[in-house]
Amino acid sequence: MSRVAAAIGRRNREAAGALVGYLPVGFPDLPTSIEAAVALVENGVDVLELGLPYSDPVMDGVVIQDATQRALANGFRLQHGFEAVHAIVERTGAPVLVMTYWNPVLRYGVDRFADDLAAAGGAGLITPDLIPDEAAGWLATSDRTGLDRVFLAAPTSTGTRLRRAVELSRGFTYAVSTMGITGERADVARSARDLVERMRAVGSDSACVGIGISTGEHVREVLEYADGAIVGTALVRALADGGVAGVARTAAALAAGTLG
């Protein structure tokens, strides 16, 4: 079984569900980003989502954009992503997914990227701008390497597209709570619950909701109907404002929401 799916399944048996935490590699610098990711695991995050900084982050809000642009300005290179994954997995044993837009993978070489990620101990990829209909090469490579592939489902997804995303995802399917970019919001959109219900209807047994989840109460609310809650912006802001100690405190507060 996928390490990600196993972790999510375990937390659904032990608690209300799983917490997936996002941080960008290289922010504010590479060593600190590794320490921050380790702190997430030590404070209740079950699955790590490490973002690769990219020059055109179309899905990311201002907080994450600023962090990734700072990482790039400080000299982030793709190889640093593999180094970070290896260091974090070695220290925590937690499943680590890499979130990346597809162009860097293409430029690096799909097979080469997958082999280097697997060698580093990574669990797979979240690919926000790669749809299943255009993913034949990645499907074959992820099958060869055993890496997870997490596709996105949105409130506007057609029934056919939704079914394909659910059928072809491995680890979990990423349910986008609302249309728009990432960021903290006062409430989780009702559309998230409706989307997960549609995903269940086409066979999803591992749906995690992301975008707009900012508090432990949000996590608790999402886990009433989803298998996992994904938090990014709140953690990135905490790291920017309070360093590793700040992001650890925020992770612990979010993780309290998994206890029901």
Results as ranks from 00 to 15, higher is better:
71 A>I: 02
68 T>A: 10
97 L>E: 05
67 A>V: 05
104 P>S: 15
69 Q>E: 03
91 R>W: 06
98 V>C: 06
50 L>W: 08
51 G>H: 11
62 V>P: 09
106 L>H: 15
94 A>S: 14
84 A>T: 08
50 L>T: 15
101 Y>A: 09
56 D>C: 11
100 T>Q: 06
102 W>Q: 10
62 V>K: 15
72 L>N: 09
107 R>P: 04
69 Q>D: 00
60 D>Y: 09
73 A>S: 12
93 G>D: 01
94 A>M: 03
86 H>C: 03
96 V>I: 07
89 V>P: 06
106 L>C: 13
70 R>T: 14
67 A>Y: 05
52 L>A: 13
83 E>A: 15
95 P>N: 11
48 L>M: 06
100 T>L: 00
95 P>V: 07
104 P>K: 14
57 P>K: 10
59 M>E: 00
68 T>P: 00
74 N>P: 01
85 V>A: 12
74 N>E: 05
92 T>R: 08
50 L>K: 13
58 V>L: 13
81 G>L: 01
105 V>E: 00
81 G>I: 02
94 A>D: 02
93 G>K: 13
100 T>E: 00
100 T>A: 14
72 L>D: 05
94 A>I: 03
80 H>K: 08
57 P>Y: 07
67 A>T: 11
75 G>R: 13
72 L>Q: 10
58 V>W: 02
66 D>Y: 04
79 Q>Y: 05
88 I>R: 09
68 T>Q: 15
104 P>A: 12
66 D>R: 15
81 G>N: 00
96 V>D: 03
87 A>Q: 09
78 L>N: 14
75 G>V: 07
73 A>C: 01
86 H>A: 14
72 L>K: 12
56 D>W: 11
92 T>H: 12
64 I>Q: 08
69 Q>H: 14
69 Q>R: 13
96 V>Q: 08
73 A>M: 01
58 V>K: 10
54 Y>A: 07
105 V>M: 05
95 P>W: 01
48 L>Y: 12
86 H>T: 11
77 R>G: 09
77 R>E: 08
92 T>G: 08
64 I>W: 05
50 L>R: 14
54 Y>L: 00
81 G>D: 03
98 V>M: 14
96 V>N: 12
62 V>L: 08
96 V>A: 12
92 T>N: 10
74 N>A: 15
66 D>F: 01
88 I>M: 03
72 L>F: 06
56 D>N: 13
73 A>Q: 11
71 A>N: 08
75 G>M: 01
57 P>F: 06
82 F>I: 04
79 Q>G: 15
87 A>G: 10
57 P>H: 07
78 L>P: 06
98 V>F: 08
74 N>Y: 08
92 T>L: 02
56 D>L: 02
73 A>L: 01
93 G>S: 12
55 S>T: 13
106 L>I: 09
107 R>T: 13
107 R>E: 01
88 I>K: 14
62 V>A: 10
81 G>R: 10
80 H>C: 03
53 P>A: 04
87 A>S: 11
